[in-house]
């Protein structure tokens, strides 16, 4: 009888452990303070090794639970290989120390380093003239822009081929800026914690929900698969129009135009969230999707902006 009880308890413990550690099918494991660990649907199906698709083998199932081959398809873009040759920190969002962006190398103020807000556009019009102007009454602490802003902190040009910017006779797929933002203007309540891979997939899924164009998703994945540092876990705190319009307001001088904004603040963790004692940033407690800008209302011209941000030291 005693042996039976011990076996029964072991069986329950094993079942619970396996539920916590693995997500089945096309799902990934995520973590939030309220729900704890849970499995959510992947954006992309799991990528299999193209040279050895052991999982679909019709042969023996003897090795089906073994880990996959060590070989992994390298997905670095061309600039990744070149950057790796010259810079020791290519696979970080910038100069990096103590799990943060090393602020001492950058000018300006603000604890949040917003890397690569990229602005994309779709319009129904041909040769649609536009002004995209930063109108904050406070000083904006830019780190980079492409192309140059004019003295009024404005990009002026026209939209050609429905989705490209033309400024001074040069075509740009997107407008780009880096900047520093005050931590106090960001929200750290809504979000989720997950693995590095899970974070990339969740952010892309979030962009898909907001109907970001395909080219912007492709750019996002290409850039951030390289530039998000290799930590096992991240907590994601999405900042949407609600936060960004207040701290970095933008004016677009056309009617029937909208700007959807999304900036993901990523906080890396070396061990699984929930087991560390002290947290500089509290774990998220609310579902972030409730504040996601709606994409049901379509305007004639839709600007969409994505970015990823990190804390600075």
């Amino acid at each position: 009888m005693k042996g039976f009880l011990i076996s029964f308890l072991l069986l329950i413990m094993t079942a619970e452990a396996s539920e916590e550690s693995a997500c089945k099918g096309n799902t990934i494991k995520t973590w939030t303070q309220n729900v704890g660990y849970s499995c959510v649907t992947r954006f992309n199906p799991i990528v299999q090794d193209p040279y050895c698709d052991y999982s679909s083998s019709s042969g023996t199932l003897l090795f089906q639970n073994f880990p996959g081959p060590l070989f992994q398809k390298d997905i670095m873009p061309w600039w990744g290989y070149q950057g790796d040759l010259y810079y020791p920190n290519l696979k970080f969002p910038g100069a990096w120390e103590k799990d943060k962006v090393a602020a001492k190398y950058y000018p300006g103020e603000g604890e949040i380093f917003a890397a690569k807000p990229n602005v994309y556009v779709n319009t129904v019009h041909e040769n649609f003239k536009f002004n995209f102007k930063f109108i904050s009454s406070r000083k904006i602490h830019f780190l980079a822009t492409t192309p140059l802003l004019d003295k009024e902190l404005k990009w002026s040009g026209k939209i050609v081929e429905k989705d490209k910017f033309e400024l001074e006779e040069v075509y740009y797929d997107y407008l780009f800026y880096d900047l520093r933002l005050p931590r106090s203007s960001m929200q750290f309540t809504n979000g989720l914690c997950t693995t590095r891979e899970g974070a990339i997939e969740w952010m892309m899924k979030d962009l898909v929900e907001m109907k970001y164009p395909a080219i912007s998703l492709q750019d996002f994945e290409e850039h951030w698969r390289v530039k998000i540092p290799d930590y096992p876990f991240f907590c994601i705190y999405p900042q949407y129009n609600r936060e960004l319009d207040a701290i970095i307001p933008i004016e677009i001088d056309k009617e029937q135009t909208s700007l959807i904004r999304s900036l993901y603040v990523l906080v890396p963790h070396r061990i699984a969230p929930g087991t560390e004692e002290m947290q500089e940033i509290p774990f998220p407690t609310e579902n972030p999707s409730q504040y996601r800008p709606g994409s049901k209302i379509q305007r004639e011209t839709m600007f969409r902006e994505w970015g990823v941000a990190f804390l600075g030291d």
């Binding site: 600039w79 950057g83 010259y86 810079y87 020791p88 920190n89 290519l90 910038g94 100069a95 090393a102 190398y105 950058y106 000018p107 300006g108 602490h141 830019f142 780190l143 980079a144 822009t145 492409t146 192309p147 140059l148 802003l149 001074e168 006779e169 040069v170 075509y171 740009y172 797929d173 780009f176 880096d178």
Partner: peptide, 24 residues
């Protein structure tokens, strides 16, 4: 020294395009 040559920023620029880095 490679180890000290920290990459601060990078941006993709099309032919004829312009950019600005804000630096110390």
């Amino acid at each position: 020294n490679y180890q000290e040559r920290l990459l601060l920023l990078h941006t993709e620029v099309p032919r004829g395009g312009t950019f600005r880095f804000y630096v110390k």
